[in-house]
Amino acid sequence: MTTQAVHSGRAQNLASSSRQRLLRGALPAVSLVIVLAAIWYFNPRAISYFGLNLMLNLAIPVALATIAQMCVMATNELDLSIGAFVGFVACVTATYMPQEPLLAVLMLGGGVLVYMLAAVVIHLRNVPSIVVTLGLSFFWAGLAVLIRPIPGGAAPGFLRDLMSFQPPLIPMPVLLAVLIAGTVHLILMRSSYGAVLRGVGGNARAVHRAGWSILKAKVAMFALASVFGILAGMTLVGVSSSADANMATGYTLLSIAGAVIGGAEFVGGRISPIGAVIGALVLQLASSALNFFQVPFLPGGRIPQEWQVGAQGMFLILILAARVLISKAEK
């Protein structure tokens, strides 16, 4: 009725908007190069097969959690429960998978169902995902504590083997990162139903008018998110070989930060799986790099451990600021 006026009033310049998109698209790659360069400057030996293996050993779970978050963000929602969910999965994996694999699989399948149910509630009742997933975060955290009141458990053999495998030339985390990015890119960016899924975030009404079910698409995206959340929890156990209910609480912010660094936006269905994986790597490298940075005026010349969390928060703010600057410069 009146949107016509709004639309034509905001007629955009073709060249400028696509250039801006390119610049934003380059942001993850550029930040990766900057972080790698900084590490190399402080400690050249770190950029090697074993150095990367060491620095990136936790990057794979983070990357998978980031992909999960990105799937939810693609539908214009946010998942505040992903950290707790990854913790829950880790507890299930380390506690039941070695001895009672069937029970473990059943529990993880239940996790997928709960995610799908959450999507149904969010869509049908038209309620904010923030509150629903915040409630779920307590649900998962509570379950994790019930399963693993004290830290412990063991990684199933196949996960330990997978995560400690050392392929020739290319470090395993790098190989897995490329594999994850490629697979998700195929599913979401290159498949024909992927276009519909992304379209829901861009203009749900248009997708609905074309005869697709928005509910199904949202449920599919949440289910996909839970699958990647499960993979994140399992690989996390593979790396750390035991579990604790609170081991992944930080993943909620990390995953949002990673997705955002990777070019995902909070509304509009704009996502980039490759960017998201790079974003996760950047975050992981940045926090490892904190250990290398020599800061003369600090005691011991190092950034204290307790600032790691804060540094991640600041890193996210910096990236967002860079994005704002890019769009301002383009105006």
Partner: peptide
């Protein structure tokens, strides 16, 4: 009147959304 295209998708992808048979 208010456009029914998804701004985040390409022209071809938007076309595909209208045609379930293209897959």
């Amino acid at each position: 009147q208010e456009l029914s295209l998804c701004p985040n998708l390409t022209v071809a992808e938007n076309t595909r959304i209208l045609h379930p048979s293209i897959k």
